[in-house]
């Protein structure tokens, strides 16, 4: 599992590979918290390399979204989720809390 962070002019892209479950979601939370501590609240989460996400991962994204949207200072958008990730978001009932893009360039360009 690897988490990479890339800063762009208007947003930061976070990419994680592999499984996001209760064993790995704390690492994702640390990365996202660090970005927000550094003052960035416009975040793209590139999920092209993620093949599994459980509710613990979904709730890391939800808590990040709550923090990003506070005072209209930004948001977390999801990019390139595969069919399995979409299924998890659907079963968790949280699809509608996120803007979801099939293309990473489009996601970055949304900010």
């Amino acid at each position: 599992m690897e988490i990479t962070t890339t800063s762009h002019k208007r947003c930061t892209v976070v990419k994680m590979d592999g499984r996001i479950d209760s064993n790995t979601s704390p690492d994702l939370k640390k990365s996202l918290d660090k970005i927000m501590e550094d003052g960035t609240y416009k975040i793209v989460f590139d999920m092209s390399g993620v093949d599994f996400i459980s509710s613990s991962g979904v709730w890391v994204l939800m808590e990040t979204q709550k923090a990003c949207k506070r005072w209209n200072r930004g948001q977390l958008v999801i990019a390139t989720p595969n069919e399995r990730i979409s299924r998890s978001l659907d079963l968790a009932g949280v699809h509608h809390f996120f803007s979801i893009y099939d293309d990473i360039t489009e996601a970055v360009g949304s900010f």
Binding site: S54, S55, W59, M62, Q65, K66, S88, L91, A92, F97
Partner: peptide, 22 residues
């Protein structure tokens, strides 16, 4: 989980069980 509530008021309790049932 009551998704009609604002996002700020929604917590993770019960999410796992709901996903299992669905």
């Amino acid at each position: 989980i009551d998704y009609s509530k604002p996002m700020e008021e929604i917590g993770p309790r019960g999410a796992g069980l709901m996903m299992i049932r669905k």
